[in-house]
Design a protein around this nucleic acid. Structure first.
Lengths: 342, 342
DNA sequence: CCTTGGCACTCCACCTCGTTGAGTGCCAGA
DNA sequence: TCTGGCACTCAACGAGGTGGAGTGCCAAGG
């Protein structure tokens, strides 16, 4: 038991060293180089035995017979789960986050700054999802008469999102009626969770007599449409240029990766399905063939405990996981704090 | 004179053929290959003489002594200016534009769809600039009381843009007062050009007595801020993956290009400074070192004659100029039409 | 039973070198 | 002014040849 434990312990040390060296140098790491760089108290031959075992178990892999070892996805996974700790950001980096995000004027600005910041400090592709409509609450619904028979509907959420739609009333509607509908509508939905809005407004139109009932029905339909619509899930990206810098980490070209990143749906699956905490998805775990040699580090963010959306980075599987995890965590926390202030 | 003309004519034919072949094959085109593909009634030797002359004049260039010729930026320029015609889109393509853009629900959607459409039909990087705030007119200004002492200011333009800001009034303000200010504010600025708004509101706050004057001043300041702010110039991009497909057209890597594209400022200079009509900028004409081997085809768009913003594509200098010009023109026209309907 | 030095072996990376072929410039003749 | 012929140039390609990093295995030592 004791012996076995010691064995295992050292094998893990070897794996950790392989991951670290490979991430640092992008070169398959051999037994000799490994004992030189890390002061493990054993000889290369011993390391070779450990390596052979690690390879049997699928944690590392040899590109060709007489080459060093490279971590497999499974190896990275073990490294992330058990062999590494989230690396906290430096003071300078924290200060940079602060000063960069504090100047934001509205939600668009917060999101835009966040994604650029994240791309810059991680040197990877950064992705930020807009606060999801369905997880927000209504702050206010505004009705703006544009012409006597056209009304602009503006929906403002507590996360700062603004959605607007135009509603055709068919016939002219007096401003006073519009004001009345606005008041009653707001009384009904303000401060309510968006996901509850459909239920709350189910019979809203029926509370009005003709001729208003018709256009109020159109109005609520449009509102519900805005609430549930697929397009609600907006995503912003930055740092794609970093992919080109790491192009040697991709088997042939970065084309399939860029292509995958352009598909909103793929991105949403990638980030939207993440847990509320920190999630790392490595290589094949992404279940998209263009992304088999990339990893995603993502985290939920929101005001306080509520997760309203996700953000994260994407890069080659050969990435500095502890560093990425630290950066993503820190940025998510800061953004959450800023959202809470609004 | 007659002789000279015939000479020049043929020299231009040769240049046109070189551009076409090079764009099609990405291989330096030699005299023999050229006479085979195009039925010019002369021998390779004659073409060689013409080529030597074209090279002296700087229109083409030899990668190395025993290679074929490649067009220079100057050669492409002449080709675009005098040797080619805008290639109209096919019926199928026009239909695709139609069906793709017609489903848009609001301005964000129009822009998002346009940029993806353009990237898809041109197979290049597409860029669309949001309708510039300064060139739009005010449709409506809305004041939404959030708390007794906080008001959300929403500015809606006739191009469909919506900007919102939060204003702190310092002390509680009755709703009736807010309504009054809203009415008078709208009476002042609705239907006015945004560029005139600062003048119109110069003494607006002074028309109110204390204690309202203070917060109304803050309000107008915020509004003017939103109007003139730099960030107003939003830009959307799609199709960066196409760069990777054409990576052989870039000297070393696509990295500098991607990097340049991530800088909003560069993009704005690139597209914002374009003429109202169709503009082609080739290679060094772009005056940005990351973009010396790219060309930009851009066009203004807007409702009717008014140009409110620009859109276009960017790709390697070795691009199908007539095709790109046709696509950009057509898409700009369709978008203008859709904006006019809103 | 684990560790270690030694040893034979493998195979990529790199260099050199010769060959090939496309393309050119120039010149003399039609 | 055009054309065919000719000598020349030079990148691209493939065929060896070599060096070196790394491995697996084995027998000896703690």
């Amino acid at each position: 038991m004791t012996t076995e434990n010691r064995l295992d312990e050292r094998k893990l040390d070897v794996l950790r060293a392989i991951v670290q060296d490979y991430v640092a140098t992008r070169e398959p790491v051999g037994s000799k180089a490994l004992v030189e760089r890390h002061n493990i108290g054993v000889s290369p031959a011993t390391i070779r035995n450990e390596m052979a075992a690690l390879e049997d178990e699928g944690y590392i892999h040899q590109p060709h017979t007489s080459a060093g070892r490279v971590p497999t996805d499974k190896g990275y996974r073990l490294f992330v789960d058990r062999l590494s700790q989230v690396k906290p950001l430096s003071v300078a980096e924290r200060r940079a986050i602060h000063s960069f995000l504090d100047g934001a004027v509205d939600l668009d600005d917060v999101v835009a700054r966040t994604v650029r910041l994240l791309a810059q400090i991680t040197q990877q592709v950064a992705v930020v999802q807009y606060p999801s409509l369905t997880r927000s609450a209504v702050r206010h619904v505004e009705l703006v008469p544009l012409t006597p028979s056209r009304i602009m509907l503006v929906l403002i959420t507590d996360t700062g999102r603004v959605e607007q739609r135009i509603v055709d009333t068919g016939a002219p509607v007096p401003e006073s009626t519009v004001a009345d509908v606005r008041a009653r509508l707001n009384a009904e939905v303000v401060a309510q969770h968006l996901s509850d809005v459909p239920t709350l407004l189910a019979d809203f139109a029926e509370r009005f007599a003709q001729p208003d009932r018709n256009w109020v029905a159109a109005l609520t339909a449009t509102l519900l449409d805005a609430v549930v619509e697929q397009r609600e899930e907006r995503i912003v990206m930055a740092g794609t240029a970093n992919l080109a810098r790491f192009r040697h980490d991709f088997p042939d070209t970065v084309y399939p990766v860029l292509e995958a990143l352009e598909e909103q749906v793929v991105l949403l699956r990638l980030f939207g399905e993440a847990q509320s905490g920190l999630t790392v998805r490595i290589g094949h775990e992404n279940a998209h063939e263009g992304l088999v040699s990339t990893s995603v580090v993502a985290s939920g963010y929101g005001r306080g405990e509520d997760v309203v959306a996700h953000l994260g980075v994407l890069g080659p599987t050969r990435m500095d996981y502890p560093g990425m995890m630290g950066a993503v965590t820190a940025v998510a926390a800061y953004v959450g704090r800023i959202l809470a202030e609004t």
